[in-house]
Amino acid sequence: MGATTDTSNETIDLTIKVWRQSGPDDRGEFRTYDLKGVSTHMSFLEMLDVLNEQLLAGDEEPVAFDHDCREGICGMCGMVINGQAHGPDRETTTCQLHMRRFNDGDTIVIEPWRATAFPVIRDLVVDRSAFDRIIEAGGFVSVNTGNPPDANAILVPKDDAEQSMNAAACIGCGACVAACKNASAMLFVGAKVSHLALLPQGKPERKQRANDMVAQMDKEQFGSCTNTYECEAACPAGISVENIARLNREYLRSLLPF
């Protein structure tokens, strides 16, 4: 990490240029606010909390943004900061980005995820239900609650389990879509398809799964993958584009009769 390692509690002054949009039908615009005395210990979302308190004091409606666990795992938060999904740090969600990464006097431009499949609800909040519908299309193993075999009856080579876990670590935040120049969801879909295709439990349905999930992905109007790998660089969970290749492979396999 290239961040400064200065631990003293400095404060910085910032100019925040943030996207404001009152609802899905509003055209939206950028508004600029001055924010003084931001502690460098703050997380990015805490900085926005402070901005919102300032707006409230001035009788302006606060900036709406999604957030929940604030420890980088729920996938709820996400915004494009100075043109980068989740900001400048790699493998870091917006909530885990800290203000020591910025300098006194900086202007920070904040925009919502932009994709046709992720319509803006308000300000920085977007509707990511398209992801749920993709999972609904096939991101599961068809097993009912009841009496599956003993857990150790299904042996999984350690390496497969590890690779599967690498893919399963996806937090579904949508940064891959936001960062992709085509707003493609291939990394998200690739991660889920890989997670299940690598495990014996997921093999019986692998063809149907790849087919259905890709069909849904297209229906949601995500773009296609032109292999520029911005998604991988933006992914806070470190999901590799290897999973996109695997998705392509699984899809190709689903077309074969054997």
């Binding site: 994709a115 046709t116 773009g223 296609s224 660089a233």
Partner: peptide, 22 residues
């Protein structure tokens, strides 16, 4: 054809866009 779809996939573009690939 894919280029057209890719354009539709993001109807509103970013004000600022920067790569994260070092």
């Amino acid at each position: 054809s894919t280029g057209k779809d890719n354009k539709t996939a993001r109807s509103q573009t970013y004000d600022r866009k920067q790569t994260k690939i070092e």
